[in-house]
Design a binder for these strands. Structure first.
Lengths: 254, 254
DNA sequence: AGGCGATTTCCACTGAGTGGAAGGCTTTCC
DNA sequence: GGAAAGCCTTCCACTCAGTGGAAATCGCCT
């Protein structure tokens, strides 16, 4: 007996499933990819071959595959990411100089936050997450800053999806989340203490573009020991203001 | 009469052709995409729809498509780009502080150079190229630095592809290219004056990784007026050395 | 040498993908 | 104001590109 009828996914979906297998940024063997994409090995073999022929995936000397330059080139030119990064870089750099901790620029992507850029000082806290990984909105400073200014339906979806607990301090109750977001809207600063990473806290502020809409957030992550030092909220606010201005935002009454 | 026989490209090739339409980082209408990818409109419509469903492309309010966050997330985690960027960032920053001009980190991709990162001063020269665009090896400082240390077959291919002239000063003769590359190998510094951009020159130095292989190059681009100032070669060399060390390179005899 | 896991090739079968055409919607121009 | 020009979406009869189980091959470890 041999092959026959089609599967239940289109070619495109299979290609994308293969791409998704690389979401973690790792190098994978063909078998790994087939397992993650839930595809037969022979199908994976052919499709991965096509990715590689194009240059989206490349094969290392040891036979493993990884994301190639072609995909990198395509991705870095994403207009939003590029515009925000260009506007923010100098301010992130100043913020880094001033604090020596991790400084980030993040945007909301669906029901998560993604770091667009990170700059880190020498002695900054150990951190897991990296540029390009998706983190939960309710358990990060940038997440709270962005969620506070997101359309109501995003809030509803986040609550509906469930407020996962990562550490004892994570916000898991809807009323508390609501209260915290109101506070963020009031003060213009979001703080998240040991909600996702043990021993770390983060302070974030929203960034607006020329239309006045909140499009990103800046944050600092530092060791809880430094919690309460006023320079963090101050620095983050100044950076956010600078980036907003660089994006063409003019505060109301100008 | 209605649709029928298959085209001459596989589904994957068509999807990639669509992706390539976005290589310039622009926003495109469906018709634009179909034209660039040389596909029938109805086919383009369906395939672009699949890209968008996955999140690789997104549709703006005005109906145009652009590269989406999903592709950005996949691309930024390209292992080589990430590793080099992380190692290089602080040195590029220092170099920017020291000179106030455009500073770059670049790698070779096939027969071209790609800027992995760029940091620019306030008053730097006007420049066309951006992070993610491919530039010719023979007409840029970084290109010469990388070509000087690339496998012989790359050199042969570059020569075979033809040394395109962009400005009067571009290297277009094989003997001259050979001579210049030998010079680069001797001095450890590559200089390219008004070869691609009018009024600008660039000074570059190769970066090595733990295996001793040249994997990237650092460069400064400034106005020809400043040609001859010794700080550029000096700064670029120091930065390249620092990045190499951060990548695990140990100079021979250690 | 032999076994195990990963990779590559083979091939009979079929429905997923194809693309020309027609219809709708919006903008521009006379 | 009408019609011409673009752009986008939907429809559908036709067919070959894609499928995936199985078998062959490779490469490493014991």
């Amino acid at each position: 007996m041999s092959g026959g009828g089609r599967g239940d996914r289109s070619v495109a979906e299979k290609l994308f499933a293969i791409a998704d297998a690389f979401a973690g940024g790792e190098e994978l063997t063909l078998t790994d990819i087939a397992r993650r994409a839930r595809l037969p090995l022979s199908t994976t073999h052919r499709l991965v071959g096509q990715w590689a022929e194009w240059g989206g995936l490349v094969r290392a000397d040891d036979g493993r595959y990884r994301v190639g330059m072609r995909l990198w080139r395509l991705g870095v030119r994403q207009p939003t990411a590029m515009r925000l990064r260009n506007a923010a870089m100098p301010y992130l750099e100043d913020l880094l100089d001033a604090t020596g901790e991790h400084v980030h620029l993040a945007v909301r992507d669906g029901l998560g936050v993604v770091y667009l850029e990170r700059r880190s000082g020498e002695h900054a806290v150990a951190m897991v997450s990296d540029v390009g990984t998706v983190l939960p909105l309710h358990a990060t400073g940038v997440g709270l800053a962005l969620l506070a200014h997101a359309p109501g339906e995003v809030y509803d979806d986040v609550v509906a999806a469930g407020l996962t607990r990562f550490l004892p301090n994570t916000i898991t109750e809807e009323p508390e989340l609501r209260r915290r977001l109101a506070e963020v809207r009031g003060t213009g600063i979001a703080t998240s203490v040991q909600a996702l990473t043990r021993g770390a806290f983060s302070v974030a502020a929203p960034v607006r573009d020329a239309t006045g809409e909140v499009v990103a957030a800046v944050s600092i992550i530092a060791h809880v020991e430094r919690l309460g030092e006023p320079q963090f909220a101050l620095g983050v606010r100044i950076a956010a203001r600078g980036i907003s201005a660089a994006l063409g935002y003019r505060p109301p009454g100008t």
